[in-house]
Amino acid sequence: MAYEEARAALLLGQMVFDRRSELGLTQAELAARAGMTQPQLSRLEAGGATPTVPLLARLAAALEAELDIAFRPHDPVVAPA
């Protein structure tokens, strides 16, 4: 469980970093847009923070992106024939 959470945090951080880079923003610029501090954003991008849903919404707006949160069922395990 802890591994899955750490992996999700790293993936989220990478997505924020990638989009920030696409927009040509510094961490300080994005942090200001999202109403957070640069050290908070740095921790998030490094996978060391778990943001709240309201913070994710602010980040999406600051990144000029849509926030998409969904529950998707796991792929069924099919036994080999």
Rank of each mutant, 00 (worst) to 15 (best):
M1D: 15
A2H: 09
Y3H: 03
Y3D: 14
E4M: 14
E4D: 13
R7A: 09
A8K: 08
L11Q: 08
G13Q: 02
M15C: 03
M15T: 09
V16P: 00
F17E: 10
D18G: 06
R19E: 07
R20H: 09
R20D: 01
S21F: 10
L23M: 11
L25I: 03
L25W: 04
L25Y: 15
T26G: 11
T26E: 00
Q27L: 01
Q27R: 07
L30V: 08
L30E: 12
A31M: 06
A31P: 15
R33G: 06
R33T: 04
A34D: 01
M36F: 04
M36K: 02
T37L: 06
Q38T: 00
P39S: 10
P39D: 15
Q40F: 00
Q40W: 03
L41D: 03
L41A: 11
L41T: 06
S42Y: 07
R43I: 07
L44Q: 12
E45H: 14
E45A: 15
A46N: 14
A46S: 05
G47R: 10
A49T: 07
T52P: 00
V53T: 11
P54E: 03
L56T: 11
L56Y: 07
L56C: 10
L56F: 05
A57M: 04
A57R: 08
R58I: 02
R58A: 12
A60T: 10
A60P: 09
A62P: 01
A62F: 01
A62L: 04
L63W: 00
A65P: 06
A65Q: 07
A65W: 05
L67H: 10
L67T: 11
D68W: 01
I69N: 08
I69W: 14
I69Q: 05
F71D: 14
R72P: 07
R72N: 03
R72S: 08
P73G: 15
P73Y: 13
D75V: 09
P76Y: 09
V78S: 08
V78R: 09
A79S: 12
P80T: 13
P80Q: 09
P80H: 14
A81V: 09
A81P: 14
